[in-house]
């Protein structure tokens, strides 16, 4: 029997040597980057820009931990290639607070104990900020449904619903 790991797919070596120039805004700061075309926004934030608040939970768009905003819309940064972000505006969890003043959603997650281990929390908060802006938080059921793309294995869900409601009011 002979086989490689079927879960892995190699891109060509030539692609690995070619870098892509991207200029985008990250948390209000203009960044000019030369990036590997294979690089995701998630890995670039974490490994190049040292913005490690955005977490990698699955790297396949299944858990929501890596949620950030691109031009104000929530996106999964693990499924977003940096090469597609020229001229775009990225906001991460590090860009929400104004100095020491927490964003109301961050404040609400502390007040309502909307997390335990904290690993999914950046993604939960980025989703919550966006769905409040989009007006998708009018009922408990709507909040639960709209927040269901963000898995929390500690099971903080009821408190997350309470946090979204506190931030809404």
């Amino acid at each position: 029997m002979e086989h490689g790991d079927p879960s892995l797919r190699s891109s060509s070596e030539s692609a690995a040597n070619r870098l892509v120039e991207v200029t985008c805004t990250v948390n209000g700061t203009a960044r000019s980057l030369r990036v590997d075309p294979r690089a995701t926004l998630l890995d670039t934030l974490r490994e190049r820009l040292e913005l490690t608040g955005t977490k990698k939970g699955c790297d396949r768009g299944q858990c929501g931990a890596c949620t950030v905003h691109v031009d104000g819309r929530r996106v999964l940064s693990c499924l977003t290639m940096v090469a597609t972000l020229d001229g775009r505006e990225v906001t991460t969890i590090e860009g929400l607070a104004e100095g020491d003043r927490l964003h109301p959603v961050q404040r609400a997650f502390i007040d309502q104990d909307g997390f335990q281990c904290g690993f999914c929390t950046s993604g939960q908060i980025m989703s919550a900020v966006a769905l409040l802006r989009e007006g998708h938080a009018s009922t408990d059921g709507e909040i639960r449904e709209a927040m269901s793309g963000n898995i929390c294995r500690c099971g903080a869900y009821p408190n997350i619903v309470e946090a979204v409601k506190q931030a809404r009011s």
Binding site: G53, F109, F115
Partner: peptide, 19 residues
């Protein structure tokens, strides 16, 4: 009592192993 590590966890400042 609120979690003492709440502020670092809601701002992304808490450094986990891979960070």
């Amino acid at each position: 009592v609120n979690r003492e590590d709440g502020p670092v966890k809601v701002t992304g400042a808490a450094r986990y192993a891979a960070d």
